Computed example of a mutant assay.
Amino acid sequence: MATTKRTTKPKPSPADEPVPCTPCGGTGNVSTTVRVGRKRRPVGQQDGLCLNCFGSGTDPDA
Protein backbone atom coordinates (compact mmCIF):
# COMPACT_ATOMS: atom_id res chain seq x y z
CA MET A 1 0.00 0.00 0.00
CA ALA A 2 1.35 3.42 -0.96
CA THR A 3 1.80 6.08 1.65
CA THR A 4 -0.26 9.22 1.32
CA LYS A 5 1.15 12.65 1.93
CA ARG A 6 -0.93 14.68 4.34
CA THR A 7 -0.60 18.42 4.48
CA THR A 8 -2.18 20.69 7.01
CA LYS A 9 -3.31 24.24 6.50
CA PRO A 10 -1.26 26.82 8.36
CA LYS A 11 -3.08 28.35 11.30
CA PRO A 12 -3.89 32.04 10.80
CA SER A 13 -1.70 34.31 12.84
CA PRO A 14 -3.26 37.06 14.97
CA ALA A 15 -1.97 39.67 12.50
CA ASP A 16 -4.21 38.18 9.76
CA GLU A 17 -7.40 38.91 11.70
CA PRO A 18 -9.04 42.29 11.06
CA VAL A 19 -8.64 44.89 13.78
CA PRO A 20 -11.96 46.31 15.04
CA CYS A 21 -12.62 50.00 14.57
CA THR A 22 -12.05 52.07 17.73
CA PRO A 23 -15.00 54.55 17.66
CA CYS A 24 -17.69 51.95 16.92
CA GLY A 25 -16.06 48.91 18.54
CA GLY A 26 -16.40 46.86 15.37
CA THR A 27 -20.17 47.18 15.03
CA GLY A 28 -20.23 49.81 12.29
CA ASN A 29 -22.80 51.92 14.19
CA VAL A 30 -22.26 54.83 16.57
CA SER A 31 -24.88 56.47 18.75
CA THR A 32 -25.54 60.20 18.80
CA THR A 33 -27.50 62.08 21.44
CA VAL A 34 -30.71 63.64 20.12
CA ARG A 35 -31.52 67.08 21.57
CA VAL A 36 -34.87 68.87 21.33
CA GLY A 37 -36.45 72.06 22.55
CA ARG A 38 -35.35 75.60 23.10
CA LYS A 39 -32.95 74.63 25.89
CA ARG A 40 -31.64 71.67 23.83
CA ARG A 41 -32.38 68.98 26.37
CA PRO A 42 -31.29 65.41 25.52
CA VAL A 43 -34.19 63.00 24.91
CA GLY A 44 -32.48 59.87 23.61
CA GLN A 45 -29.94 58.42 21.27
CA GLN A 46 -29.98 57.67 17.57
CA ASP A 47 -27.80 55.12 15.74
CA GLY A 48 -25.82 56.20 12.72
CA LEU A 49 -23.12 54.97 10.37
CA CYS A 50 -19.55 55.11 11.68
CA LEU A 51 -17.65 57.67 9.60
CA ASN A 52 -14.26 56.22 10.50
CA CYS A 53 -14.81 52.78 8.94
CA PHE A 54 -17.98 53.57 6.89
CA GLY A 55 -19.89 50.72 8.52
CA SER A 56 -17.42 47.90 7.81
CA GLY A 57 -16.33 47.56 11.45
CA THR A 58 -12.63 47.14 10.62
CA ASP A 59 -9.94 49.71 11.32
CA PRO A 60 -8.92 51.39 8.04
CA ASP A 61 -5.51 52.41 9.43
CA ALA A 62 -4.44 48.87 10.37
Rank of each mutant, 00 (worst) to 15 (best):
R6T: 12
K11C: 04
R38H: 05
M1V: 09
K5N: 06
S13R: 07
G37F: 07
G37N: 03
C24M: 07
C50A: 03
T32D: 14
G26S: 10
P42S: 06
T22E: 14
S31E: 11
P12D: 00
T58F: 02
A62R: 03
N52M: 11
G44N: 02
R6F: 11
C53G: 02
K9M: 12
R6V: 15
P10Q: 09
T33H: 05
R6M: 05
V30W: 06
T8V: 15
T33N: 06
P23C: 08
T58K: 01
G37D: 01
P18R: 03
Q45C: 10
G48H: 05
R35C: 12
S13V: 12
P42K: 09
M1K: 00
A15N: 04
R6P: 05
D16K: 08
Q45V: 12
G37H: 02
N52K: 07
K39H: 05
T4V: 15
N29C: 13
V34N: 02
K5C: 09
V30L: 06
V19H: 03
P14M: 02
P12G: 02
A15R: 04
Q45D: 11
V30S: 05
G28D: 10
A62I: 00
C24T: 13
L51R: 12
P23W: 09
N52A: 11
R41F: 07
Q45S: 12
L51V: 08
T7H: 08
P12F: 03
T7E: 14
R35A: 13
P18F: 00
T33I: 14
M1W: 09
A62F: 04
K11V: 06
V43P: 03
R41H: 11
T27H: 13
Q45M: 12
G37V: 03
L51D: 02
K11S: 08
R35I: 14
T4K: 15
T32Q: 11
Q45Y: 10
